Simulated scan of single mutants.
Amino acid sequence: MSATKRIAATAVLAMGLASVPALAETPFYEGKTIEVLINYSAGGPTDVEARLIARHLGKHIPGNPTIVARNRAGAGGMIGMNYMADVVRPDGLTVAIFSPPVFTEVLGDAGLDTRFKDFIWLSSLAVPQICYVRRDTPPGVEEPADLLQAETFNASGIRPTSTHDIRMRLSLDVLGVDYNYVTGYKGLAGASAAVLQNEAQYSCGSIASYRSSVVPSMVETGIAMPLFYYAVVDATGNDVLNASLPDIPTFRDYYRSVHGENPSGEVYEVFEAVNNLKTSLQRGSFVPLGTPDEAVDALRQAWKALETDEEFLSAYEEAFQAKPVISHGEETMALIESLDDIDADLVKFLSDYIAAGSDN
């Protein structure tokens, strides 16, 4: 073959190779199994919501990994946090979908072995709490405003350090009602069961718990009524309304309706600070530091894809009669970093407040 023909043949070969599509890299998760870890017991609102998310998350992860869910519950969510920190390898094969024990870290609980910023956060869900009361609370609660005239009633909680209990107590103290704080029930299900059995007359729950348990057993049967929900208050001082709760007032709207003015004072300011952070981080998903970038990117993209996944959105709304409010990656990381900026006076107030509640 002449030099001219060799050059021509080489050029043709090069053109042919250039036209062959580059081989796609094998997706990180191809042929792998992801274990979704849940830090509360099976059947509770955290578990139900996490498992629903897990069922739909996998289809958006390149490589179509197998997804399995497992519970590691206990100590108000701390056992799961410690397990993620102390046991789980940063290989991208274990993903937490938790109810993060936010103020357990803020208050420096010795039972927590880790810091929230020692993880890579993928996403978070904002979930408000809805408070409700039995209608037969003496002398009778015929409409929401009647709570202020109620005789001493029992408010059921989970544990003094839980944000459920802290917010419940703070809001009732801001309202100025007469109540007994009764805690130690097993999760939101236990707290609502206490109201159903009339051991307590008042409690609060997430949308998942309220819609799936409280509404069918107490609201639809006429035993109880919703009072208000805790809305996040934005930087301008306005409530961030939840579109899924159009018929229930926010706590501030309720307070204005019964007191004729906006809530104010130190106790309310503490309530607002606690609620803003906890509501925004009611659910959180994360992996250990050191997890490969390919895994983090794939998981974050999968979370983002849920927002336009009609099948997921329909299943979520059917389960909770609410739309998911999801934040992603950097936005969630900013919330985690804000934990370091919480005012020391607020932490001292909360420590004393929890101690007083524990003495009841």
Rank of each mutant, 00 (worst) to 15 (best):
I67A: 00
A69N: 09
R70T: 15
N71E: 13
R72W: 14
R72C: 11
R72S: 08
A73Y: 13
G74L: 02
G74M: 00
G77P: 04
M78S: 11
M78L: 14
I79W: 13
M81V: 07
M81I: 08
Y83Q: 02
Y83R: 00
Y83F: 09
M84R: 04
M84W: 10
M84K: 03
M84N: 05
A85G: 10
A85M: 09
A85I: 07
D86F: 13
V87H: 06
R89P: 14
P90S: 13
G92R: 01
G92M: 00
V95L: 12
V95W: 03
V95H: 01
A96I: 05
A96G: 09
I97C: 00
I97R: 00
F98W: 02
F98G: 03
S99K: 12
S99R: 15
P100W: 01
P101I: 02
P101E: 03
P101N: 03
E105A: 01
E105I: 04
V106H: 03
L107K: 05
L107R: 06
G108R: 11
G108S: 08
D109N: 10
D109C: 09
D109M: 10
D109A: 08
A110H: 13
A110M: 11
G111M: 02
D113P: 12
D113Y: 15
D113M: 10
T114H: 06
T114P: 08
F116K: 03
K117L: 04
D118N: 07
D118R: 04
D118Y: 04
D118M: 00
F119P: 06
F119H: 03
I120R: 15
W121I: 04
S123K: 10
A126Q: 07
A126H: 05
V127S: 09
V127A: 12
P128I: 01
P128A: 10
P128W: 00
Q129K: 14
I130G: 11
I130H: 15
Y132P: 02
Y132S: 02
Y132T: 04
V133Q: 07
R135E: 13
T137V: 12
T137I: 15
T137G: 12
P138M: 08
P138Y: 04
P139H: 10
V141N: 04
V141H: 01
E142N: 13
E142Y: 15
E142S: 14
E143G: 12
P144E: 02
P144F: 03
A145S: 04
L147H: 03
L147Q: 03
L147S: 05
L148M: 12
L148R: 13
F153P: 01
F153Y: 06
I158G: 08
I158F: 05
I158N: 07
R159H: 14
R159M: 13
R159A: 15
P160T: 09
T161S: 02
S162P: 11
S162H: 10
T163E: 13
H164E: 07
D165F: 01
D165S: 11
I166F: 01
M168K: 09
M168N: 08
R169S: 11
L170G: 11
L170C: 12
L170K: 12
D173A: 11
D173Q: 15
V174K: 00
V174M: 00
V174H: 01
L175S: 10
L175P: 08
L175D: 07
L175Y: 11
G176E: 03
G176Q: 00
G176S: 01
